[in-house]
Amino acid sequence: MFIKRNWKKLVLFVPIVLFRKIDVIFYDLKIDMPVAELFIQNMFSGNPDRQQTHLTIVMFGMVEIVLFSLLFGMYIYKDLFGSGVYIIIRQTNRTKWFIQRCTELFISAVLFAIITAGMTFIISASCSKYGNYYTSIKIFLLTTVLSALFAFWQTLTINLTAIRFESTIGFIANYITLTFLSLLAVSHEKIPIIKNFPLLLRLNPVSNVTINWASEWGETLAPVLYFAVLIILTIFIGVRKINRLDISLQNNESAA
């Protein structure tokens, strides 16, 4: 049922990725760049260290994630004003329902990340002159995990903001915040307070996806941990909200 509900939205990313990488696909010559380097460049349109210098580059690199959040931003919210009501009354408690919806959203985010990063990796591998796949696969895996976690967290946040206020506010507030965080991430060297306190940059979700923190494998897992904590906190807030919510009282803008 879950696949039937969501496969069209996920398959949509195949032509989107192909279209965005069309210049790389039709580039005649093999590129003199290792696969990992080329993959990161194709994924985020920046340099291999993921040290972005321009906001436009970061935003361009996040087009797929933003599109994912647009497609799934009402996944949980919509259920509260439509078919979900008939599911909720059959559950022993609302927390169980919410956790199930979060799990489905997370699976969608993982599939999304596998499709987008996987296709970008295949395109990069076929265009590179080199064949060192070990490092490349490590970077591919980390990028996939981070993209999935970020996409899930961002989309969950939109859903919860929409439940608290309404869907338009959910989307607008989230994209304004995303733009602001991206701006902070790319101009951190120009903002004294962030330059002097690098921890502030590390607390920024956008910089956890787009900037490479360390060369050590163990330390590169820090952003994964960061997102895990962020997601647990968001789910905790969501559970509290859902249990206190008067369901089906708000307008039926999304009723199926």
Binding site: S83, Y86, I87, R90, S248, A256
Partner: peptide, 23 residues
């Protein structure tokens, strides 16, 4: 509880049987 709420539909992308099986 069996419930019918006005303006609350089921999943439009599923058949009638699939909707009820899901519930």
């Amino acid at each position: 509880i069996g419930l019918i709420i006005e303006n609350m539909g089921l999943y439009p992308e599923f058949t009638g049987f699939e909707n009820l099986k899901l519930l």
